[in-house]
Design a binder for these strands. Structure first.
Lengths: 129, 129
DNA sequence: AACGAACTTGACAATCATTTTCATTAAGCA
DNA sequence: TGCTTAATGAAAATGATTGTCAAGTTCGTT
């Protein structure tokens, strides 16, 4: 009857394995390029669709870079944020349970639901200071 | 000799007055449209440039919507964050001394200086839930 | 093992926000 | 008033993302 299946295809496993290997935030275009160079070519459109599907399924993290481009990465066990050097790009992952709790309570206070948040810290790293 | 002036023009005051009147987050395109309808037409390119200039001068708040489009609004006096409804765009300003302190200490821990941060919370407001 | 409905794919065209180009216009100082 | 230079804006360019649709696959069913 109604099997609303998500099928497993070569393309899908290619994308997830690329994400696993890269283990870092990458844009759709970069992942597409990576797969092409590796000889495991997947259509650009398909990479877009797959990443979006994985993202809304909660299987990958998606963040919006400052220039508006979306970048994806295999979901890491814990939700965290980034401390980015404005000059050299060095990125440090930081966690903030305090912040998470704060965001949740503020949202609840105002009656918001289905909340998500973005938090990035920019500055100059020790080397670039 | 070297007069590195920022000149005051009709277009610039049109953009700032539009921002003041609207008093809400709007996209560049929306502001451009608003000015055109009001008969105080300003080129789209100029609106883009003006908003970016105002933003980097710290005179307006700029945030990146989840779809990647930039939206701007007149700066309010104190540093604060936004709780934005994904559906209707309703924006609530929220303050978070906790978050500020957390961001500062995390940065210090990693030796970062000149730090700034962005934090936006997206969700569904009570009406849109 | 073959069938077939529904899901997937991918080349290409279409969108759409934003940027670049560059010739024209206008601020503001001397 | 004149002149230097910033500012403007129309049009073209860019670049990421989405839509289209015919052809290819998957997988439960026969």
């Amino acid at each position: 009857m109604s099997s609303v299946g998500i099928r497993s295809t070569r393309q899908r496993s290619a994308v997830t394995s690329a994400l696993t290997e890269l283990n870092d935030f990458r844009s759709t275009q970069e992942i597409h390029e990576y797969l092409k160079e590796r000889g495991d070519s997947v259509g650009l459109t398909t990479v877009y669709r797959t990443l979006q599907a994985l993202s809304s399924a909660g299987e990958v993290d998606a963040i919006l870079r400052e220039d508006g481009e979306s970048i994806y990465r295999m979901c890491s066990p814990a939700h965290h944020h980034h401390l980015v050097c404005r000059s050299c790009g060095l990125t440090v992952e930081v966690e903030g349970p305090t912040v998470e709790k704060w965001a949740d309570s503020v949202s609840a206070e105002h009656g918001f639901s289905s909340v998500s948040h973005t938090l990035e810290i920019f500055g100059l790293c020790p080397t670039c200071s």
